[in-house]
Nucleic acid binder design. Structure first.
Length: 423
RNA sequence: GGAGGGGUGGCUGAGUGGUUGAAAGCACUUGUCUUGAAAACAAGCAUACGUUUACGCGUAUCGCAGGUUCGAAUCCUGUCCCCUCCGCCA
């Protein structure tokens, strides 16, 4: 959520920013509602001040003049009218503000589609094979690591079963990634609810922007996490962080659920785009002045996962039109998948500045006695499964159809190769 | 799920319709005193909105949302959460 003050003070800048994202923002309606709201507040406050004085006098007086009480009755009903005006204006303002995305950083690549994304760097050599590398859905099936048909039988299309060493490889990846971020990058591990309430998904910006993508339990109005970001953001909702605490680094492993409504018919083979997947998510609460630097460090933490798995990857900076609503700058990490001959998005790291903090009312006190300020939030996958699993299967496949386990995972898998005989 | 109890400022805890944003204590900050510290004493110590060049002023907030009233922390309704006992249960 943007601050109303920013929109009031520099509406043209906000208009330009929205244009660069391909978003519409009803700035004029907002300013009009703001005007209505403020004049109603001014009048209501004056009337209440008058009523407070009179009520105090009446409380002490022996006489209760009927005409004065009659006047106050009128004052009371006028205040109620004004309160309705204020409430309606507030609701209108809020509804608009919840829909307006963040203002991108000045130097973020401008463009409305992913075509305008910029490749920041490519790390590692693309592997060459002296045989035809298979896509992961064939490898997974051949090795008995992935069961697509039964996944569909249990649930629906785009669901899958990992089995045997395939399941274990994913579990090893998860454990290793969490350990890396906790032991070497200074994150605190968190286990969070996988179903969260409406306030939580609104605070993160997933409502209203991502509503169609989330699974929703109507009976209790609970929402299945589309990402741990939504949950972690609300850990400090409605709090004031005392001096000396920030920055806070959290990492959580959760399942993520997405309807993939807008991807119908796309990536239908394999487990690249599925309704349920696991993710290790990093999240930071930081002081505003540090958030740009913290984003670079966050990306470095995520990149390290790909680097240590010894797979080629590249880092993109997303264009204004391709970023999610809360972000002012986003880097994606993509690992090369030789079977499918494509770059696989395995991480998205964003600086959301005060966008989520304002929605969630998360503030911090710079020093004892100082006024609270909104803090900045950042999030990044570190990394997303099962796409890393796909990348491992395809990058580490051998001529005989087996798959070697990346060195660094072997203490976690307790095996170094997945072979056909394992199925 | 059934029965009962309870939600007041950073914490503890008064307050049942009228100078109560809210007693008191603790914690915290500053000052006095002290060689220093402690103790003692004094003062300060919430958040948001509106208004103001500024000092400031006004309004709101006692889980949340409505209602009654000239006036609500206090009365009424709904709702959320917590605690105790019973039942059920990974």
């Amino acid at each position: 959520m943007l601050s109303l003050e920013l929109i009031r003070n520099d509406p043209d800048m906000v208009r330009r920013a929205m244009e660069s994202r391909g978003a519409s923002a009803p700035i004029d309606e907002l300013l009009e509602l703001d005007q209505q709201r403020r004049s109603a507040i001014a009048e209501a406050d004056q009337l209440r001040a008058r009523r407070n004085v009179v009520s105090r006098e009446l409380g002490q007086a022996k006489e209760r003049p009927a005409e004065l009480i009659e006047e106050m009755r009128g004052v009371g009903s006028r205040i109620r009218e004004l309160e309705d005006v204020i409430r309606v204006a507030d609701e209108g303002i809020n509804a608009h503000l919840l829909n307006i995305p963040n203002v991108p950083r000045e130097d973020a690549p401008i463009g409305l589609t992913e075509e305008s994304n910029v490749v920041e760097r490519t790390v590692g050599e693309l592997p060459t094979f002296d045989f035809e590398p298979l896509p992961h859905w064939e490898l997974g099936r051949n090795l008995g690591a992935i069961d697509f048909e039964r996944g569909v039988k249990l649930a629906a299309s785009r669901f899958y079963i990992l089995q045997g060493k395939g399941a274990r490889l994913q579990r090893a990846l998860t454990d290793w990634m969490i350990d890396l971020h906790v032991d070497q990058h200074g994150y605190q591990e968190m286990y969070v609810p996988f179903l969260v309430n409406r306030d939580t998904v609104t605070a993160s910006g997933h409502l209203p922007h991502f509503q169609e993508e989330m699974y929703h339990d109507e009976e209790d109005d609970l929402w299945m996490l589309p990402t741990a970001e939504a949950a972690i953001n609300s850990i400090h909702r409605d709090e004031i962080i005392e001096p000396g605490i920030l920055p806070l680094y959290y990492v959580a492993h959760t399942p993520c659920w997405r309807r993939e409504k807008f991807s119908a018919g796309r990536d239908t083979r394999g487990i690249k785009r599925v309704h349920q997947f696991e993710k290790v998510e990093m999240f930071k609460f930081v002081e505003p002045e540090t958030s740009d630097d913290e984003l670079e460090k966050l990306v470095a933490n995520a990149e390290e996962v790909a680097a240590k798995l010894e797979m080629p990857y590249r880092v993109l900076q997303l264009s204004t039109g391709d970023m999610s609503a809360p972000a002012v700058r986003t880097y994606d990490i993509e690992i090369w998948a030789p079977g499918g001959q494509e770059w696989l998005e395995v991480s998205s790291c964003s600086n959301c500045t005060d966008y989520q903090a304002r929605r969630a009312k998360i503030r911090y006190r710079p020093e004892a006695g100082a006024r609270p300020r909104l803090l900045h939030t950042l999030n990044g996958s570190g990394l997303a499964l099962p796409r890393v699993l796909i990348a491992i299967l395809e990058n580490y496949q051998q001529a005989d159809g087996s798959v070697i386990v990346p060195e660094i995972l072997r203490p976690y898998t307790h095996f170094d190769r997945i072979e056909k005989a394992d199925s």
